[in-house]
Amino acid sequence: MSAAIDILSMILMGAGGVFCVIGAFGVLRMPGFYTRMHAASVIDTLGASLIIVGLVLQSGFTLASGKLLILWLLIFFCSPTASHSLANAAHRRGVTPWQPDQGAKSSSKN
């Protein structure tokens, strides 16, 4: 494996890790349930994808990269389904979206 690919995959995986931390930080920081879901979708899409692409570059043209691609497809097809079902369930249960003007009340609840 050439050094350039090594460095590129390192950069990609590092960026993926950074986006995962940002997403998790957002899940912690955001007020209200629906806004937290937006932060979690950063983890599911960009964070996971960058790390997987970095690992694919590491493994080169092998069976492992095929498996990683299937993993990526799984994330891309299933994570929106899971997010949508969670949001839908919350909507059905009457979880109201957070609004900026009720910020003081909401933050005291957390």
Binding site: G17, A24, L28, R36, I43
Partner: peptide, 15 residues
């Protein structure tokens, strides 16, 4: 990367 993932695990667990 492992460190970053562990940090985000901590944050998520707090949530």
């Amino acid at each position: 990367v492992v460190g970053a993932l562990l940090v985000s695990l901590c944050l998520l667990l707090v949530r």
